[in-house]
Design a protein around this nucleic acid. Structure first.
Lengths: 255, 255
DNA sequence: AAGTGGTCTAGACCACCGT
DNA sequence: CGGTGGTCTAGACCACTTT
């Protein structure tokens, strides 16, 4: 534990991030202005400006000259993952998303899941299993575990209306994610749920997501290989977007 | 064309990025110090500081107090793509990478490739086809097209020694990437090259990469589903790394 | 000792937005 | 009009590295 004083602008950032993370400041809420920070915290305006500017760069807040600074509505195709929520993804394609809940239970974490979520064996975790449909066609079987104390009211949610992903990001911004993508032949139960043809390969995404420095959810997402693909776009920070959004073209490039 | 004066700090950034992109400043070269910029460009030190600080955040340069500011050795697991170079990836696993070149030719861009690379039909493009091995086991068939004028000496390269990816990033930092991942049954020729079992699904990555605002290369990467998976880690800028690098654990989480 | 980056201040001017 | 953010200045002090 170093006791060194952190730079003032960093303290200001931490303060505001803390208020956002704790829920004291909610999306679209107004954040103290530069002048307010100057008075309240006894700093110069350049220091307050730097703190708020960096929070903007990091996606925590939006700033509008003449209006003020406001908490970002986290997740909106924003920072962490391109598309975290399959319902949004489907709607962006102009299709309709529906969802069938197969399981919504409280369980004790077994070996692999406990390890992935960094909790003790036997700890409480919620287990969700749902099928997502794009225009009546199943495109994802979501098999998700959630650390229980992160989302205490999980069993009360109607996940056919709000996806687990949307629910979780509403609780607290998911700040870090890790995923592994794999092609595999799913087992018979999964094949049936996803209406996959014999021999059709499956795309499996295993995704673990962090909030406040600890893993809170782990999901296995099974997709039919013929009806789903994963698109990503990577831009180094600071470079706006030179690429026109013609990802669609790429999708047509069959071998 | 807006004739509005860009902010001074942005002009300084553009100036330095230009020198890096053009090759005038190479990795590890020293960048003008704040004081030198103050004198040369007639700005205040805070402005020069902001320009250099943002270039640091964006990964263009490293700064060492007392020493100076230096151009980053681009790509080292850094910003754009987690792992762009399969040889590095294999070596990080402690395995040996070898590579067999199947094709290295100059061609005229046909329909799909021309469209993906934003060049005229019939333009010159290089076509590479290679198989990458991890300890004698084939794990990737790389089918790549490169805009000819981006890499004029492409036919002279020995790609069994330096991967196309390493070669391309050496020419110029690849600044933007777009990829689509898909599970599919590859055709017989691909299956044979990758020594895939009957019915084994394949993982296909189609990746297009930009440099200086234009697409310069387009690759189809075929992998055997049983021997390869794609891992990614996403952190919002500004958040260091709370997650310990235990991606390995995730890989063991079989269904 | 001289140069570097890291931070901070107390002013300033501007464009914009709301009332 | 006053408040907001966006930028910039000309100083300053500090810790650090190199000579």
């Amino acid at each position: 534990m170093t006791v060194v004083a952190k730079p003032m602008y960093q303290q200001l950032k931490d303060l505001i991030i803390g208020r956002i993370s704790s829920g004291e400041l909610r999306p679209a809420d107004r954040v103290p202005s530069e002048n307010e920070l100057v008075e309240a915290m006894s700093v110069s305006r350049m220091t307050a400006n730097r703190a708020l500017r960096e929070l903007t760069d990091e996606g925590y807040v939006r700033r509008i000259a003449g209006r003020g600074t406001f908490v970002s509505d986290f997740r909106a195709g924003s920072h962490v993952l391109e598309v975290q929520n399959i319902a949004d993804e489907i709607e962006q394609r102009g299709h309709t998303h529906t969802c069938e809940v197969l399981r919504q239970t409280l369980q004790h974490a077994r070996g692999e899941v406990a390890k992935a979520l960094h909790v003790e064996q036997g700890s409480d975790v919620f287990h969700l299993m749902l099928v997502h449909y794009e225009n009546e066609s199943p495109i994802q079987l979501e098999d998700r575990h959630i650390v229980a104390d992160f989302a205490p009211d999980c069993l009360l949610q109607d996940f056919s209306a709000v996806t687990p992903s949307a629910y979780l990001t509403a609780i607290s911004p998911l700040q870090e994610a890790e995923q592994v993508v794999r092609a595999a032949q799913p087992n018979a139960a999964v094949r049936q749920r996803l209406k996959m043809a014999d021999g059709e390969p499956g795309l499996v995404v295993m995704r673990r997501t962090w909030s406040h420095g600890r893993p809170v959810t782990f999901a296995r997402l099974h997709h039919p290989g013929s009806r789903y693909e994963l698109a990503g776009h990577y831009t180094p920070p600071g470079t706006p977007k030179s690429a026109t959004a013609d990802v669609v073209e790429l999708e047509k490039l069959q071998q």
